[in-house]
Every structure is written in structure tokens, then in C-alpha cells.
Nucleic acid binder design. Sequence first.
RNA 1: GCCGGGGUAGCUCAGCUGGUUAGAGCGCCAGACUCAUAAUCUGGAGGUCGAGGGUUCAAAGCCCUCCCCCGGCACCA
Length: 537
Amino acid sequence: MSKYLVFSAWPYINSEPHLGTLLHLISADYYARFLRSTGEDVISVSGSDEHGTPIEVEAIKQHKNPKDLTDEMHKKILEILNAFSVELDNYTRTENEVHKEFVRDFYLQLEKNGYIFKQTTVQLYCEKDRIFLPDRLVVGKCPYCGYEKANGDQCDNCGRLLEPTLLIEPKCAICGEKPVKKETYHWFFDLPKLSEEISEYVKTLDENVQGYLKSMLSEGLKPRSITRDNRWGIPAPFKGAENKTIYVWMEAVLGYLSGVVELERRTGKNLFESFWLDPETISVYFIGKDNIPFHAIILPALLMASKKGYNLPKKIASTEFILFGQAKFSKSQHIGVWASDALSVAEGEYWRYAILALRPERGDSSFNWQDFDKMVNSDLNDKVGNYIHRVLMFLNERFGGVVPANESASKEDEEFSKSVMALQEDFIKLNYDLKIKDAVKKFVEAAELGNQYFSSQEPWSKIKNNKPRVSSILFNAVQSIAHICFMMYPVMPKKATKLAETIKLTKTGAPEKWETIPSGTKIGHPEPLFQKIVIKY
RNA sequence: GCCGGGGUAGCUCAGCUGGUUAGAGCGCCAGACUCAUAAUCUGGAGGUCGAGGGUUCAAAGCCCUCCCCCGGCACCA
């Protein structure tokens, strides 16, 4: 048994989450459930990332207080997570007091350790909105192609990288007024000081992750500013920084720690020290590729700089993007699938299967409704659901719902049980290797084997003259369902739990033996586990 | 421009430490069965593996050149 910290990237809650955001939360929930079902010691944490400029801007647009806005959004997220059966040990938010206190203490410690310095910079400022504008929030005419709506950091039309000062007729993206240059000062994290340690550390990560960091590392790490002139955020703890807040990213990543502190206080168990300070703890981070620098460089560097001996990220399970057809999900262009759209089409657990089976572990993967239709109606309903149902109905009709004895075993039975057990072993190994996309499909493959077995053995015709043989067939078919149930659990916990109740499967762990449901067990009345859905597309 | 990922059957993808006639699912065509939510099972057709060159007894896989798509390039979270 090992200790595991399972984390999902914290969703930034300026808008409703879409499939891509849900992917990490569902992956983390899946993985935590899998690990626990095999007997590991697991803590899973995530939360709403709710500070920073985009939310402040959104609040200005909606004429709301940022806190009221994120209160609403956080509540909505909790409902969404519930609908997708995501039950982490602690899903919290960056507005919680434990987090704020933790972050302030953490940065004071870094200052004490000599990793913080102050520097003056010049930025664009909107006098009307009283806000410093990040590059992206400045729009204007591209000096290269003349595109009117170029952002301060990049022109979407010609793709060139820009500086806000290069824009012709720069305007504030919020109100359209012309911004002014204004001097300000910020506190910086001295990342270069840790260059060597970070370079060494990065070598312990997946090659895929290293690829994304190559250019960053070869160009040399640069200091990273910790503070912002925003009003909405955690007040910076440094002397003279009373009117500054901490840059969202630099505080949100610390939620992985504060979330465990919070959990510890709630449960009264010694969790923080036990998990976070144990170098043997296996920490797994489910994130998108866009978050790699923060998780593979900034977070470890912060942890190193604290000199507390915190567990550095061990496995960064980053994924590529889920595309909608050929296009990237886009809120402004209404491309993609958002949580509430998804739930109006199918229940959350169907989506868990679809999203995990689509996990873009290798390259970008693309979502389309035809495939989703197939995954739900064919994989889940026709193959898995129908296999379970046909077996249990047969058992009900011919054996009064009582699992018969294995009276007349045959070579085919043995082959079948071996194949299913092999699938289960694959399933376990793939999960430990974080090949979730493949692991998730194993219960469907098991049901396919079951359907083949059942069809080839034809118990419905043998029942006429060879009942002992039929007893064995049903015995084996029922056992296979127990194994399917185990593999299905992390994917669709509620469905699997319902199935477990029906077949009287009491043990929750991996069935070690083929014979998991003893002969003589009276199973419950079978109800179809899945329903077909109708999708308009 | 630099860095990274990708380009394999109509579609979605696997295979990529080089080695039998390149695989799966869906879709399509044909057949079987009736226990089951008309579900299932069996068989078939279909690809010069982005382009060209090279290394090798042997390349989808390694090397070189080029083309196309996506992402990153650090005060966007």
C-alpha cells in the first residue's frame, strides 16, 4: 500500500466548465477511485480558482461584486461535479480562509528564505476602470497586418507576437478608452536561483512533459512576478504591498497544499504532514498541456524555495486538448460542449465514460456527436448493459435468480475466465501506468467477451437437455459480471454500485479469484443498467 | 522565427526500442441466432502508413529535405 495525492487542475470559474475542464476533474476522481479500490491510501483535492483579472473584468461587465459572482459560480460548479459523480475528498475554493492564510504565510517564508525581490515596471493602465491591463486586455490595430482587433500580446489575424506598446491606437478591451502608461512596482520570485535544481528535477518527469519545457529551460528561467495591482485576490503579505494582491497562478497552485490542510482540520486526522512531507508519497497531477510550466517548474520551484521538504510532483499526467470536430473549444464562438449542455443530453456517468475514453493522452482528440452516440448506445447500452441483463434475466427465469453450482465445467469456460481475468490484469496495469484512456475500455471488452461466450455456448438451447452444463455457463457468466463491475466502478461509480447491489457483490476491491459470487447466492431483480439516448445532430 | 505534438482504411484512432500478407472500432455488405432493453454473434470488401531521397537482408517505424494541421514562446489564466 502506498500513499497517493491525487490532484486535478483547479478550474478557473469565470465561465461554465466545458468538456476540456471537466476532463481533469473526472480523471482525478476516476484515478482516486481506482487507487482506493485496489487498497491504496489516497487523498484527492481540487477547487475553484476564483481570483484575478478575468473574473474582476467579468464582474465589472455584469455590475457585480467579484465575490458574489464567484459565490454563484462555485455553487454551480459543485452542482455540476455532483452530476458527474465527482466526489473528491476536498473540492474547495481559493476564497477559503485556510487557503488565504496558507498562501500569505508561504510567501513570507519565501521572503525570509531570500527568494523574493521587488522591482519597478511600467504597464498600461485604464483610468476609467482603474485597472492595470494585462497585454491581452489591450486591443488595437496590428502594426504588421492592420487587423483592427489585435490583442496586446498577439495578433489573431497574422499570428505575430506583439507588445501592447506596438499597437496602433491601443484601447482598453473592457471600456474602449485609451490606456496610459503608468509606473508600478512588483514583488518577484527569484526563479533563476533555482535553475539547476529545477533542471535536475524536470529530468524525473515524463518525456512528453519535458518536451514542453525544453525551450523554457534552454532560454533560461526568468524571475516571475508574484504580485498584481488587482483588487480582487489575496492581499500580498509583503511590507509595503498593502494595496497589491498575489497573482492568481502563484496562489492557486498552493491550493494543492492548503486543500489538504483544510481537509486535515475538517477530519482531525494527521494528513498534511503524513502525505505532503513524505518523499515517498506518489503525487499525481491531472492537468492540460497548457498548465505544464506551472506544475513542472513554478510549483516545484516554490516548494523547493520553501525549504520545508514538501513532496515534489511525481507524475504530471498532462493531456492534449479535446477538439470539437476539427475546431478548438471556444466560448466566444460557441464551439464546444459545456457542462449543462452535456447534462441535458445524457446523464453525467455516460459522459464520464465518453470523456475518459476520449482522453487525449497522445495527441489532440476530437469529440463528435456520432461517436458519443455510439459510445453510449452501443458500448454502454447494447454491449455492457445488454450482456449483464441477458445473463441475469436468464438466471432469473431458469434458476430462480440463484447462482448455480459449477457442475459441468468445460474447456470453453476455462478459456473465458482466463480471458476476463487477463483483461482485469491489463486494466490494473494500465491504470498504474496512467494509460487511462485504454484502461477505461476494458470493462466494455469484457462484456464483448461475455457476449461471445454466451452466444457460442447457447444456454437457451442446452437448457432443454443438458441442465448441468447450463449451470456452469451461468455460473461463469455471473462471475464475469462481478469483474466487469470492478472495472466499471471508477468510470461509473453509481452505476457500478447499483450493479454490485443487484449481484450481491459485497467486496469492493479487485476480485482476486474468478469465483467471486458464490453458488447459492440469490441475486436481486435485474433492472436495465443503461438506457439509450436520442441525440439530435 | 524558435520549441513541442500530429499527418495510418469513408470516420475516430492503435501500432512507431525496424522483422511474418499494416490493426481495432464505427460505417458499409452478407449470414447466424433468439436468452436479452431488436440486443447479440460470425464472415467480407476497403489503406502505394503526408511527399521525396537515404541507411538496411528488412521501414509506417531510423536519418535528411520538404509540405500541411495544432499548441506554446513565460504579467492569459
